[in-house]
Nucleic acid binder design. Structure first.
Lengths: 111, 111
DNA sequence: GGCACATGCCAAAGATTATTGGCAGGTGCC
DNA sequence: GGCACCTGCCAATAATCTTTGGCATGTGCC
């Protein structure tokens, strides 16, 4: 995943997703290797419910991916891992992304 | 301004600032050259009050800088311009930033 | 003075996020 | 059965962010 693969709206979403301490830590933890929800929650010291919300947000933004697996002893475990990505943000890159923004209000007066 | 000049908290702030359509457009517009508030508001088709809020946020994040100048005819005009920056975001870079995060709750159980 | 343009700020309402706690389901094991 | 572990989801609250409209300041000019 790279900066210009994304539309302006997608980029906004990705940035919004990254702009959170919890999610940043989750990503950092997963950068060290895949892990499953409960375990990850313990390692990060946050509640499972909270972690789950953040993981979903990360997944929706395409920053992590999940796989449901069955452990040897039959427990269902959901493993998450980071999606490799490289975002190169500069004023120019953002200017490019801005062009593909879906204007919420709309500010196009000229053609 | 580069990715690793920033502490985790600062990076979060910068990302949160970038993650907004209006601010992205403002940055895009300023990437094309400096401009003053009222004019910029007209070009973007948003209210001055709204633009001002976003400009302040951008300035606080260090993404733009302002200069108050007097036009030939005595009008006070505040010019804004983008701060050159290059953010290189990868899972690893974020992992590094995550280490310097000021934990809101605190999740340090081990040393 | 009245008009056009520039700035700044604020209070209030609306919309979106973040977080908690509980309850549901499922498995294996003593 | 009871306990420990895994998953998922929801409703409610708290905390933040976004946006508007108005009002106040100042300038030059007819």
């Amino acid at each position: 995943m790279q900066t210009d693969d994304l539309s302006g709206d997608e980029l906004v979403q990705v940035l919004a997703t990254l702009a959170n301490p919890h999610r940043m830590r989750v990503l950092a933890a997963l950068a060290g290797g895949r892990n499953y929800v409960s375990q990850l929650a313990r390692e990060l010291g946050i509640s499972r419910a909270l972690l789950q919300v953040h993981l979903k947000r990360l997944e929706k933004a395409g920053l992590v991916s999940a796989t449901l697996e069955l452990s040897e002893d039959g427990k269902a475990m959901k493993f998450y891992e980071v999606t490799p990505f490289v975002l190169h943000l500069t004023p120019q890159a953002l200017a490019g992304a801005a062009r593909t923004l879906t204007t919420p209000n709309d500010a196009e007066k000229d053609s």
